[in-house]
Computed example of a mutant assay.
Amino acid sequence: MKKSLGFILVLICILSLGSFAAAEETKAVPNVKAKPTPAEKVEQADDKSGVPVIVVHSGDDVLGGTLALKLKENFRKSVLFNLAGNNSKAVRVRIESRSEFKDRPEIGSVYSVVWTFAESEDVVPFYLKQELGISTSRSVETDASGLMNETDKIASEYKYLFE
């Protein structure tokens, strides 16, 4: 019995030493002196196809600025639109906003949105549509969504301008 127990212990030791030696052989040591090869630069092609849009805001009120930022954020997330640069053919959404009440600017903002189309920043834009509205802190999200929906309607109506 002692011989078989001893034999089993020796067999276990030999097997564990063999697996330890195999693990040491497969472990690769990096060459510290060799310079790493730079990763290939992958150019990010703008695969996002959609209506190119530029949002421009002017005004000094917080809610109007928030409305413009929410609208840009919605355009950026959407697959229907693509935020474009100033020198590209795009629908331009110009938002002009002011505080509804000068003494209490947190109550609301009055805004005017004008949609135009231009080949670039240097070209006189074509007037497409305009809209007036009042935005409050509670309605900024829905107002931005409504303006985005209106932009989609306008873009589909004037899609021949992009051809």
Rank of each mutant, 00 (worst) to 15 (best):
H57R: 08
K153P: 02
T136C: 03
F81A: 03
S145C: 07
T116D: 02
A23T: 10
K27R: 15
F126L: 14
P52E: 00
V79Y: 10
V79H: 13
L128H: 00
T136R: 06
D143N: 15
A22G: 08
D61M: 02
K2L: 10
P30D: 05
M148S: 06
A155R: 01
L15K: 09
I12K: 08
V123K: 12
K48H: 05
T66H: 11
S88W: 02
K2I: 13
I14F: 15
E157G: 06
K33F: 15
I107P: 06
S156Y: 07
F7T: 13
I14C: 14
L132N: 15
Y111F: 11
E121S: 14
A68I: 06
S112M: 11
G146D: 07
P52M: 02
E24I: 08
S97L: 05
L15W: 08
K72P: 01
G65Q: 08
P125E: 03
L63V: 06
K77S: 12
N86Q: 13
V93H: 04
N87R: 09
A118E: 01
A118W: 03
G18P: 06
S112I: 09
G59F: 01
D152E: 13
Y111C: 03
Y158A: 04
M148R: 07
S120N: 15
V113W: 00
D46L: 03
A28S: 15
I54N: 07
V51T: 06
E25R: 15
P52G: 01
H57M: 07
G59V: 04
E106C: 04
S145F: 09
G59E: 00
F81E: 04
K77C: 03
V113K: 00
E106V: 06
Y127N: 04
T116Q: 00
V53G: 01
D103S: 15
L128A: 01
S4K: 14
A90P: 03
V110Q: 08
I134Y: 14
